[in-house]
Design a binder for these strands. Structure first.
Length: 215
DNA sequence: CAGTAACA
DNA sequence: CACG
C-alpha cells in the first residue's frame, strides 16, 4: 500500500498552537446536537446574563455555567462559586454528554483523565468579544482547559505567557475544539468581535463551552 | 485589565 | 498603551 492515506477517511485536523495546546478541528461535530440540547436545558435553570468586571464594565458576552462550580465576576472580582448569584440555586449539573466530550478531547490532546467540575457557557451575538486574558482562577493549574466552539465562526487570539507576547489569530468554526495545558496552560487568549451571520445550528449566535477543573 | 479608549 |  503505497498511498494508504489517499483512501483513508478524512481525519479531523490537529494543529499544535504551542507546546501543550492543540486545535482539534470538527472534534465536537457529532456531539453538537446533544451539546446544544444541554445548553437549552441549562439555560432554563440558569439564564444567560451579562456579568460585570471588577473595573465596572458590563461584559458583551452573556454567560452561564453548569457543574459543581460556576465562574462569576462582579465588582469584587473573579471567582468560582457553587451557586448562581442571580438565583441563589446551585448551578445545573453538568450533562454526561458534556463531561464525556471534554474528557475525550483532553485525552486526544494528550491530557488523559481530565475530570472537569465546571463548564462556562459563553454566548456571543454580533459585536460581542472577549479581551485577551488568562484563565488563572482555578485552584489547580495542572488540569487543561477544553474549549468547544458552536455556531457562528469567530476569530480566536492565541498569545503567550506575557500579555505583550505575539498574538496569533485563528478562525474557529462549529465543532472545533481547543485544548491547552502544561506549558501553555496560562497562555493569554481572546475572541475578536463576532461578525454578523447565520448558522443552521445556532441562528445568529456563537456558543462556547469552556471546561475546567476549578476546585 | 474576561475592560475601554486614545493613539498613529 | 494608559488607564481608574
Amino acid at each position: 500500500m503505497a498511498q494508504p492515506d489517499l483512501f483513508a477517511p478524512p481525519s479531523p485536523a490537529r494543529d499544535i498552537l504551542s507546546p501543550g495546546a492543540l486545535l482539534l478541528r470538527g472534534f465536537a461535530l457529532d456531539a453538537a446536537p446533544d451539546l446544544l440540547a444541554g445548553i437549552a436545558a441549562i439555560e432554563a435553570q440558569a439564564p444567560f446574563r451579562h456579568m460585570v468586571t471588577p473595573g465596572g464594565f458590563t461584559m458583551s458576552v452573556a454567560m452561564t455555567s453548569c457543574g459543581a462550580l460556576g465562574w462569576v465576576t462582579d465588582r469584587r472580582g473573579y471567582r468560582y462559586a457553587p451557586h448562581d448569584p442571580d438565583t441563589g440555586a446551585p448551578w445545573p449539573a453538568m450533562p454526561e454528554a458534556f463531561r464525556a466530550l471534554a474528557e475525550r478531547a483532553a485525552a486526544e490532546a494528550g491530557f488523559p483523565g481530565f475530570a472537569p467540575d465546571t463548564c462556562l457557557i459563553n454566548r456571543y451575538i454580533p459585536g460581542a468579544k472577549l479581551a485577551l486574558h488568562q484563565d488563572k482562577d482555578e485552584r489547580d493549574t495542572g488540569a487543561p482547559i477544553v474549549s468547544v466552539s458552536l455556531g457562528l465562526p469567530a476569530t480566536f487570539q492565541w498569545g503567550g505567557l506575557q500579555r505583550g507576547d505575539t498574538v496569533r489569530r485563528l478562525a474557529l468554526e462549529h465543532g472545533d475544539v481547543l485544548a491547552w495545558g502544561g506549558p501553555s496552560r496560562l497562555f493569554h487568549h481572546g475572541i475578536l468581535a463576532l461578525k454578523p451571520g447565520h448558522h443552521p445550528a445556532t441562528g445568529a449566535t456563537r456558543l462556547n463551552l469552556t471546561f475546567r477543573r476549578a476546585g
